[in-house]
Amino acid sequence: MTRSGRFLLWSGIVALCAWVLVPIYLIGVGAFGGRAAAFRWPKGILPVNTSLDQILVFLRIEGVANAAMNSLIAAGLTMLFSLLLGAPAGYALARFSFRGADAFRLMVLLTRAFPLAILALPLTVIFIKTGLYDTPLGVSLVHTALALPFATLVTAGLFQGIPREFEEAAWVFGCTRFQAIRKVVLPLALPGLAASAVFAFVISWNEVFAASVLTVRERTLTAYLLTVLSESPIHYRFAGGFILIVPSIVFIFAVRRYLFALWGVTSR
């Protein structure tokens, strides 16, 4: 490549990195700047009088801490459910050829052609009857429906990547199928399982629609922010947006090695 070509290439790359990073930086500045910063005119690119207090003020607003807690619970449960349901199914897809395997795979893939969160609408009635309405558990059930297809396909890929012979060797040396899974398969699959758990967490943490439909008082953070959006002062919105973003970025960083395993399945 020529010098000018290389220069052009790297300019493009740097510009695109800035396109991603600068807005995050700026909402961070907004979140820590409080009211004064939000209304200062004109703004400079550098932060002025930022302090942690501004975020703490936001967190002390009635309902925010509770909503954050609900989000954590719902996301944690989603993580748990999608793994508990998805990993065995993924294992079955990876290790057995059985009648109906293709039908099951199809059903899992089919969920992607549907805007799943919208299916929360009819669930409201049943949830009210069963007491699941307005609970993080209820929200997590719908979020599990979102995350489960991914968890199933990702873990199937994961188990496929662990040679069958490892398990067979364990059987020959005296393990039952269950013991072989515990002693050999799980330790080898652990990082990947953790990655898909984190992924399920992020799906739930970020979901807005179903969470808003299925809660009134026990809002998740996204649902809370959505409902108070129009009445809350603008710097609170920045603080809320920033708090939403931070865990996601940390998680995506944690699973960066598995990004392709996680999202690559969408291309199959």
Partner: peptide, 30 residues
């Protein structure tokens, strides 16, 4: 597991998450 035999696999199937010692000890440990 119930046939009372041991096997050496064509592609080894040595467990990557255990030390050589633990690999060799595997059958005895189970």
């Amino acid at each position: 597991a119930d046939r009372g035999l041991a096997m050496v696999f064509q592609n080894y199937a040595v467990f990557p998450h255990m030390t050589v010692f633990e690999n060799v000890a595997f059958g005895l440990r189970t």
